[in-house]
């Protein structure tokens, strides 16, 4: 008889009992000035799973992602309607502290963007300003565990005080992920995290995503169909600002329902 590994068992179980919803979007509409970018999007993000957002350029997937930690607030002409709740609390309520929200919902961008500081300071900055650490040794521990979780510690442990910008692209991106993890977020948003990386660095980030989902809820925007198929458990397909299909990843990539999804993932779009 074949024995399932713990991870396989968890995978089977997670298919049988869907994880509770971490983030829920209800009738989300987004406008940039007069132009509407998202139309009544209803999408639930399950806890401790990877949700991939796919679709052609300009389909609204990044716009939706940015709604989840109110990054769109930084754009003057942007207006968000509808409800987005994190653990059943609407994140657009007036009493929400946006800084705290962004600590709970971290973000990793397309281009690695480490601060122009040392590797250590890149990680230490967040926990320090959020008051998450009491002592220097606490801080050192947070830096080390964050780097370890991001799979970067062994590569940088001897040069923690060198500039973060001196690392390779792939290492910089994992540094950014470590930086996001350092403030103990619940959700990590990733906007095309591998598009500037080579295949080896990409594989390391994907491996990391797979490990991170044990503890974090992850939402990833990607243009690589194969990446979405590899790393996610749930996939949402956007087209012209509409959510056209949502389903478990295995089904979306082998037997999608919507014609637009079929065309897009098989390379027949446009």
């Amino acid at each position: 008889m074949n024995m399932l590994t713990t991870k396989q068992q968890e995978d089977v179980l997670s298919k049988m009992t869907p994880n509770p919803v971490k983030i829920s979007g209800k009738d989300v509409c987004v406008f940039y000035g007069e132009k509407q970018a998202l139309f009544d999007v209803n999408l639930d993000i399950p806890e401790r799973q990877v949700t991939a957002l796919i679709g052609p350029s300009g389909c609204g997937k990044s716009t939706f992602l940015r709604c989840l930690n109110r990054m769109n607030d930084t754009i003057d002409i942007c207006r968000v309607e509808g409800h987005i709740s994190l653990d059943d609390k609407n994140i657009y309520d007036r009493d929400i502290d946006v800084v705290e929200l962004r600590a709970r919902v971290g973000m990793v961008f397309q281009k690695p963007n480490p601060f122009p500081k040392s590797i250590f300071e890149n990680i230490a900055y967040g926990p320090r300003i959020h008051g998450l650490v009491r002592s220097k040794s606490d801080l050192e521990e947070v830096v080390e565990t964050s780097l370890q979780r991001a799979g970067l510690f062994d590569e940088v442990k001897d040069r923690l005080h060198e500039a973060g910008t001196g690392l390779s692209g792939g290492q910089q991106q994992r540094l950014c992920i470590a930086r996001a993890i350092a403030v103990s977020p619940e959700v990590i948003l990733m906007d095309e995290p591998c598009s500037a990386l080579d295949p080896i660095a990409t594989a390391k980030v994907e491996e990391l995503i797979d490990e991170l989902r044990e503890n974090y809820t992850i939402v990833i925007v990607t243009h690589s169909m194969q990446q979405a198929a590899r790393v996610s458990q749930q996939t949402a397909m956007f087209h012209l600002g509409n959510l056209v299909e949502i389903g478990d990843t295995d089904t979306i990539f082998t037997n999608p329902t919507d014609q637009k999804t079929k065309d897009y993932i098989t390379g027949r779009y446009g």
Partner: peptide, 10 residues
């Protein structure tokens, strides 16, 4: 070469 998906893969 093509990493076929969905209908193509099938």
């Amino acid at each position: 070469k093509r990493q076929p998906m969905a209908q193509d893969l099938r």
